[in-house]
Design a binder for these strands. Structure first.
Lengths: 210, 210
DNA sequence: CCTATACAGTAACATTGGTTACACATTGAA
DNA sequence: TTCAATGTGTAACCAATGTTACTGTATAGG
């Protein structure tokens, strides 16, 4: 395990910390589309992503959902982190976007390391910083863009995360992520196809024109 | 100055830190509607609110704006804080919602204190936590609520901040804050008035039914 | 007092996005 | 092979929001 942690985080942490991480951290693996954390789950450890990607979703009381952002290798979830420090419950839902490995750090250690390791402290601040930026970006997207632009951004983000211009998903799934209806997505996708921006197939969309 | 800092933050910081704050902090005062920071301004110090309230706005490239949240006494701006640590430029605009006093802390001190004072570290984390929560709330609002519900929430928030059910503003200003048009706001306000939820006057709205 | 300006009310219309309904194709399981 | 479940295409309609245009009124400054 040490090797994997080392690969993903060596550019950030000193060796001593890396060893502590691999001592106390618990390795977990998730299959594609497996739920990692649900809204209301109590949070007692903090995840470090070793490989794969995670989709972070917000849900309202009616169960309507909205994609907030993706997490990748080397990221942690500042939302979870925030919950950890407040010993609170999760306000978001996390789903594995692809097969994903992560290492769970118990809260106590995470707090201890903040005093002990400067690199850890910097990492935690940097995480908060990234997450605030992502949230701002999400707000910009839903506040200032129309659905067609949001859809295109979604496809690009997803293509980037998967390092593949062939996005494997259904119209219904996109509709869930963007908090709209399947019909709207089908309609807009068709328009994009006519413009030559994408090519449509059952269960997949090819992003042609970035 | 020490007294004011003490009043606003004594429940958080130890005396030694409070004294450091009043030594290196620079007191600034802003009139109602005065701009505190603009998008793109470089951030070299971090504000602690002593009194008053600040409106935090996001702007897109066309100058369209959107209210993110309010800051009150005892708050700091984690966005600014985030910028400080990254030595970056402001991604938001801050405007005094009412006459406001704040104390500016130079970046160097703010970083130094993170190692030096646990209370400061906790305060900074707590700020990040609050800001993430506020951002989530903002996202919920624009993603899941209709304009009439957003308007009502806006009026309630504003009444709360001003501790006064008489909200002094214009339809145009509300439209800017909610990123919509004046006509839409006038229309919805009229509907709320007919329902007896509010009473309308020139330059002010009375929130009757919380 | 007079007048320019800001503020508010409202109608008519355009656009975007959401809903319902149905057709048809693909796929996997019985 | 057959059938049910899932995915997609599309029309028709509806609701929410945005736009344009015009009205009248309050207010501040000359």
């Amino acid at each position: 395990m040490l090797q994997e942690v080392f690969d993903a985080y060596s550019f950030v942490f000193e060796e001593e910390l890396l060893e502590e991480i691999s001592e106390v951290g618990i390795l977990k693996e998730f299959k594609e589309n497996e739920m990692i954390i649900a809204i209301g789950d109590s949070v007692s450890s903090m995840p470090l992503l070793l490989s794969g990607a995670i989709k972070i979703l917000r849900e309202d009381q009616d169960g309507d959902e909205l994609l907030l952002y993706f997490l990748e290798r080397g990221d942690t979830c500042a939302m979870t982190l925030s919950c950890c420090l407040g010993h609170a419950k999760s306000e978001i839902r996390a789903v594995a976007e692809m097969p994903t490995k992560l290492i769970m750090i118990p809260i106590e250690k995470m707090e201890e390391w903040i005093s002990k390791y400067k690199s850890w402290r910097d990492f935690v601040f940097e995480s908060y910083h990234s997450r605030l930026s992502e949230m701002l970006d999400t707000i910009d997207t839903i506040a200032f863009l129309n659905m067609d632009e949001r859809l295109l951004k979604y496809l690009r983000d997803k293509a980037k995360i998967n390092q593949n211009e062939l996005v494997q998903t259904t119209h219904q799934q996109i509709a869930y992520d963007l908090h709209t209806s399947r019909v709207v997505i089908s309609r807009l996708l068709k328009k994009l196809e006519l413009k030559g921006t994408i090519a449509l197939n059952r269960n997949s969309i090819e992003v042609i024109d970035l």
